[in-house]
Design a protein around this nucleic acid. Structure first.
Lengths: 153, 153
DNA sequence: AGTTCCACTGATCAAATCGCCCAATACGAT
DNA sequence: ATCGTATTGGGCGATTTGATCAGTGGAACT
């Protein structure tokens, strides 16, 4: 089994096979395709698709599902990058909590002074303010620094 | 009515309201969320979410759904976010210099402690190191702080 | 005021799908 | 040959979907 160590804990890296890749390919085209449609299209049992998909998500090969939005949609939204410091060993819990916030659209671990880097997108400033409070209230978040992205240059 | 022409045919552009944006925000975090879950989360009737979503797709505000895949093709590239402080009034010159570096793929002005936020993507660590030096050598760059993005979580 | 129009609600309903279970089967590795 | 794992086909209840419908409320217009 191929393994890679990150952050002290050992994470098993799953290597997708051909069926996995076909499932991913179909989901890339339609992320809301039902398991039944996928199993029909691929000619395998529904339970198989279900198991594969579960595993792909569990192993982190698939990070989740999202929606493709028209480009000019974002003009009136507030963008920011937030650096987060986490106390002790609570990184995993913090990540789980932050992942649940729809306004956080990318979340990376990092090195140096901070532990996490989050990209935030909010509908307006008051919404944005609410998100900041929410993040700072998360158990395990020790410190944070937020930079509003003003204009793309 | 705001209109835009694309491909020869005239398309009415739909302007999402607050509820639409909330739906989109939730779908961005979980593109497979059921209509029931969405209606629960937003406190509106299921039929409403269904109608809104239909319209968002029909008008092209939403292009479709997809899956977020672990970036394995990027497995050998180095990603980082760099916060930059600029001395005095030299922001414009600094921006012009940084814009010339292909490894900087997004560049935003910001508020607070820093003046610029740059996203950097390099082929490898030594390449990455070269970029960092280059940025710090730019006339007008007073200080910087770089966070390597380790893994997407 | 009265009327029209439209979106939202809450409710039904059948059909599809999901999540979970099971026993039987196929296949690869030891 | 045997063990372990994955797949299959099936069944089950619970959930979700797509499609209705009548009722409500608000905004715009006469």
């Amino acid at each position: 089994m191929s393994k890679t160590s990150a952050g002290g804990t050992t994470v098993a890296k799953y290597t997708p096979d051909d069926l996995d890749r076909q499932i991913i390919a179909h989901l890339r085209a339609d992320g809301r395709a039902s398991l039944s449609k996928l199993s029909d299209a691929l000619g395998v049992a529904r339970g198989t698709v279900q198991n594969r998909l579960d595993r792909l998500l569990e192993t982190g090969t698939l990070l989740g599902f999202t929606v493709r939005v028209r480009e000019d949609y974002d003009v009136n939204t507030v963008h920011a990058v937030m650096m987060i410091e986490v106390v002790g060993k609570s990184t995993t819990q913090v990540i789980r909590r932050l992942r649940g916030m729809p306004e956080i659209y990318t979340l990376h671990t990092t090195n140096g002074n901070w532990d996490l880097v989050a990209n935030i997108r909010a509908a307006n400033l008051s919404e944005f303010d609410r998100i900041l409070r929410e993040v700072r209230m998360v158990d395990g978040v020790a410190n944070s620094e937020t930079s509003l992205l003003l204009s793309s240059v």
